[in-house]
């Protein structure tokens, strides 16, 4: 969840609804999570100092709370991305394995 939010915000400041919208779009609605669960996560990230919050005016002239990455947050994003990449690489290797190991029976 944190990775999703950080990645979303890497495009620029967004309010919570935008983040949710983008995730839905990009993943083509693959994740069926409660939309509301986004908000505690956002606040936790703010407490950790990875994102900053500020009230602003939205496209349709309503007030919305915008979130943006902090330098610390950017660093965290890079870290999480590399972790994910290594994870994905490892899983990929497992999934694409063609040779059966010698030590397995049957």
């Amino acid at each position: 969840m944190d990775l999703l939010i950080l990645k979303a915000l890497s495009w620029g400041p967004m309010h919570g609804y935008s983040v949710s919208y983008w995730v839905r779009q990009v993943t083509e609605e693959t994740f069926d999570i409660q939309e509301g669960a986004l908000y505690p996560a956002l606040h936790r990230l703010e407490e950790k100092g990875w994102i900053d919050a500020e009230w602003g005016v939205s496209e349709n002239n309503r007030q919305a709370k915008y979130y943006a990455l902090t330098p610390l947050g950017r660093k965290q994003l890079r870290h999480e991305l590399s972790t994910w990449a290594r994870f994905a690489e490892a899983v990929d290797k497992i999934v694409r394995a063609t040779e059966k190991p010698a030590w397995v029976q049957g």
Binding site: Y17, E35, G36, Y39, R62, Q63, K65
Partner: peptide, 14 residues
Amino acid sequence: GDIEDELKFHLEAR
């Protein structure tokens, strides 16, 4: 009030 507003915004937008 902050949180109320934030959640309300989301619901209205959805």
